[in-house]
Computed example of a mutant assay.
Amino acid sequence: MQHNEAKELFLKYQSGQCTAEEKAIVEDWLLFGKLTEFNLSDEELEQEMKYLDSRLPIEPIIRKHSFRYQLPVAAVLLITIGLGIHFYNKNPLSNSGPVNSIAYEQGITPGTNKATLTMSNGETFHLKGNKDQMLLQETGLKITNTKQGQLVYDAHHPINAHNPIQPESLLATHTVTTPRGGQYEIILPDGTKVWLNASSSLKFPALFTAQERNVELKGEAYFEVAKNAAKPFQVLVNTTVVRVLGTHFNITAYSDEPNIKTTLLEGAVQVNNRNRIDRLKPGQQSIIGKHGEMKVVNAADTEHAVAWKNGYFYFNRTSLAEIMKQLSRWYDVDVSYKGRIPVEEEFVGKITRKASISEILNVLELSGVHHKVINKRIILTSEN
């Protein structure tokens, strides 16, 4: 069932013109929406979902949760149908044909592999994942940029800290910065892999010669840290220090977000903030507020935390404001609001980051959030 077909079916139901089969399909969705009004157990909700899934031609995208909040049934229906078509399609662009939208015509396209490498001496390299390129080759270090969108530091000859004659570039600090609409993967000289999200930066030494492997992060990054018990790996974010030996974790620390979030997927990390220290286990998340308050979530949504790294947006009861922040960073657009926007609504679903922004905006249209696109600025309004 396509997007327009689903919308037409719901309007047909409202006007009383559905066949018995069509009426059953829509009423199943209404029933699905009404599930948010009850305090159902996970098992009861799972049973209802299986029944609905067997009746509907599209996959429902509301996950297995015990919902404790209530939305208007019609709104839930629209959100569910819209997101089910656009967000839960495993390859939503495969049958969409040529993109023909105002957003695309005005240059709003998905982000790509692009970043800037800045050396301590001010020299810069504009990185793109379109060709293999040697950036630096000296005794102790080789830096290459690959067509896969990787910046690779190869410490092929470990530096001798007691040798006074060494290239200055090996003792320098480098910074990789991604713009809005860009992302990049970095393989540090110790073998640690870092995926840098849009509007982010990572500062690190060209070679780890100190007793600790220290890097500084702004924005968001996913880390797979190479194990080295003799040299702990530390990520510095403002007044927060995330200390590890070898593990997989994600840090979100955008300046326009109220919290710094560290989500652990594998191993163990120690989060230090001012006078408090928390040690995380896999599946936990540390949240630090703007005033330094700190808490640990025991059952964190790890899929949500790393969805960007895996190539898709994942919304799990996500607000409109948070959705638009993510779209702004990835599609390099500005967002403004006009009139009354239904900010109380929460959205559930996922969509590839390769999708056109129009696909996502069209889903929002179903819940009464209309849009205009003017010079790479998206204006959201409740009015047509």
Rank of each mutant, 00 (worst) to 15 (best):
N113D: 12
F233K: 02
L11S: 15
Q211C: 09
V297Q: 10
Y69D: 09
N384F: 08
E322R: 07
K131F: 11
G219N: 00
R317L: 08
T239Y: 06
G122I: 09
N91V: 13
N100P: 08
F32H: 06
G289L: 12
Y222K: 01
E185N: 08
A300Y: 06
W195Y: 04
T173P: 03
K227H: 01
T173S: 03
T252W: 09
L170M: 07
A155T: 01
G84F: 05
R55P: 09
N228D: 15
T80S: 12
T302Q: 03
S356Q: 12
P167N: 05
D334S: 15
E43N: 07
S356T: 01
L327S: 11
L136K: 10
Q2W: 12
F347S: 04
E44Q: 11
Y69C: 09
L9S: 13
M294P: 08
Y314I: 00
T124Y: 02
T209A: 14
F87P: 00
Q137L: 07
N121F: 01
S367Q: 06
P282I: 02
E345T: 08
G191M: 05
D42F: 14
E37R: 15
K142F: 01
L56N: 05
S356Y: 03
H248T: 08
Y331N: 07
V152L: 05
N362F: 04
G149K: 08
G33T: 01
G289H: 04
L45D: 04
V152W: 00
K7R: 07
I374H: 07
S367A: 13
T36Y: 13
T116L: 11
K281D: 14
V335D: 01
N238I: 10
